[in-house]
Design a protein around this nucleic acid. Sequence first.
DNA 1: GATGAATGAGCATTCATTCAT
DNA 2: TATGAATGAATGCTCATTCAT
Lengths: 196, 196, 196, 196
Amino acid sequence: MKEAAQKKINKYERILEAAAKVFAEKGFHKARISDVAKLAGVADGTVYLYFQNKDDLLIKTFEFIMDEVNSVIRNIYENEPSHKERIKKLITAHYQLASRYPHAAELITFELRQSQKFMKEYENKKFKEYLRLIGTIIKEGQEAGDFSKSLSPYVTSRAIFGILNETMLQWIASKGKYRIDEISNTVMKIVLEGIA
Amino acid sequence: MKEAAQKKINKYERILEAAAKVFAEKGFHKARISDVAKLAGVADGTVYLYFQNKDDLLIKTFEFIMDEVNSVIRNIYENEPSHKERIKKLITAHYQLASRYPHAAELITFELRQSQKFMKEYENKKFKEYLRLIGTIIKEGQEAGDFSKSLSPYVTSRAIFGILNETMLQWIASKGKYRIDEISNTVMKIVLEGIA
Amino acid sequence: MKEAAQKKINKYERILEAAAKVFAEKGFHKARISDVAKLAGVADGTVYLYFQNKDDLLIKTFEFIMDEVNSVIRNIYENEPSHKERIKKLITAHYQLASRYPHAAELITFELRQSQKFMKEYENKKFKEYLRLIGTIIKEGQEAGDFSKSLSPYVTSRAIFGILNETMLQWIASKGKYRIDEISNTVMKIVLEGIA
Amino acid sequence: MKEAAQKKINKYERILEAAAKVFAEKGFHKARISDVAKLAGVADGTVYLYFQNKDDLLIKTFEFIMDEVNSVIRNIYENEPSHKERIKKLITAHYQLASRYPHAAELITFELRQSQKFMKEYENKKFKEYLRLIGTIIKEGQEAGDFSKSLSPYVTSRAIFGILNETMLQWIASKGKYRIDEISNTVMKIVLEGIA
DNA sequence: GATGAATGAGCATTCATTCAT
DNA sequence: TATGAATGAATGCTCATTCAT
């Protein structure tokens, strides 16, 4: 990364990344806008040139991260024809993303729910899209006879998210006690057998 | 029980139950002590005669709920010899508890993580006990040859919690769109096949 | 005034009086709630136990003052049968009130309009009542043949307020350069001749 | 005039006129420099090339308007020898100016006082000149025996301003309920009889 | 001169907690 | 024990002003 060049441009993204980190570390409520601004290297007021308010900053941070995640999943869906391989790659991709962007992972893990609670009006489109993508993979697998037809695709996609999210959290919290491939291995077996 | 003693216990539990409800409805940060006090039918100051502060009230509310949950699980473990049946009953019990005490379920689902974040020093003993109980069931099942030996029991117990938690949330949020037995069915299949 | 006794009771009125003074001295916008609180000898938060917000505090301060003024005028109206004397006493009473409660006078003079501007929804009932009272005095004087029938009572009552308000301001701003009876004299002549 | 010079003058006056309008509509404190700039069709920063700061902009706007008013009054004074006619024309001119430049009228009516409050150091020369002009008309009328000698000219000029200002406000606020000639008529009678 | 992105000081309001009764 | 009035720390957001271009 070219620090100097970054300074001027991409203030929007710099704030987003700072927000992801601060929100992940302190939690949304304890995080102060001034913390985010300081980490992003801008003035407090500057945050409000790019985001409407603190809630909006949280939402945009989510959507920024979820866009990444969804794009990865869509990519798997479009390039991998095997239904079982799709699931395998999906799981692998999750842990890869989590280890590359731990703050983002932590943010989704920790703050996603909380935010839905106090922003009743916010319809989490990106998360719905995420579930829809996985649901499609499940459905096509069922139609092809690779996955059990007795499973509700919507419940299954939610269950898969639950497993991934919880074990990702376990890994983040453990700080090295659990190796990521031990987790990944167990999860992959459970999911693949579970939906077979 | 003497009247005076009864009264105190009642007040303690009344506050706990009020707290569970208010925290679940508003989220911990948005919930005000005065809301809890009003619902419990006591003065604001009275809450501080039974709990050190707001954090302590949240912790005690968790532990109150988790004690119930752990006691149910321990009961299953002690009275059900079949390993697979233990898992089935465990899952059933979860959804039963959730539908009987939706506030408690919502509280655990929504606030558990958040609280861990701002109470770094708080070691969530009751949750650890929960995971240990499930871990034991898994381990014994593996030793008996009923569950796959290639799974990490700790990761598996966490994965099971993730599935149950996430689908419970799905059910709570859907408010009737998903029937609990549709969810329960799919989850039971995934878990049983997944760990087999 | 018994300071000690006052301390406990009448927190509401103490805040009102502090507000009148601070608003008069600094203007509504520059006045800080903490200034009012400090002058009233209470904590910032205490202001919010008695008033909804800063706007409400301003409104209540106005109404408190206007109630006094209207009560004085109503008293004159009810006890003085002579139409000309009513006007004389009205004018005298105004300057007396102004010299006794200069902060209140200044507040009405300075802030009354401004507040109407930014609180579009606030219908200034007390000021309307004030104008109605004077309008009634004018109308009855016209019917009795003491005041010119060619004058619009509503415009006249407004004109009288304009004269009193402006000259009161002149006196407050002059800080002694103009004697109050010089002002009072001139005003009384203009008004009495003007409406005769 | 050369184009360049023209442009600058235009920009200066365009900002002044925008300021008069915005200040009148929103009040000084609620008006934002960016509102004024946008209405004037210039950048925010450009305002600061012509005016020192927001206070200065308000002052210059006042003085711009008061210069107009004073020039009209001076014209009446210089061209009309009859003392009574001077007063009549003065009153007529006021309402004419108010109906032609409602924003300016509203600005003077609403904001004049407020501004004096927070700009303690600002000596309102143009307003003093206004009062001096009317005072001169009164004094000469008194010397000629047309107006009562027992009136203080300074108080009287202030009283006249008070009447005009307040009734102008009444008219502006009523938005058509009162016709301007009903107001003008009543005011003219009160003033002429009042000072006779 | 002209721009407008960036700055950062300033303040109303909330609510956990205390303590006199 | 119980009360609830009083406290005061803590922070999101606005907008006048600056200055690099």
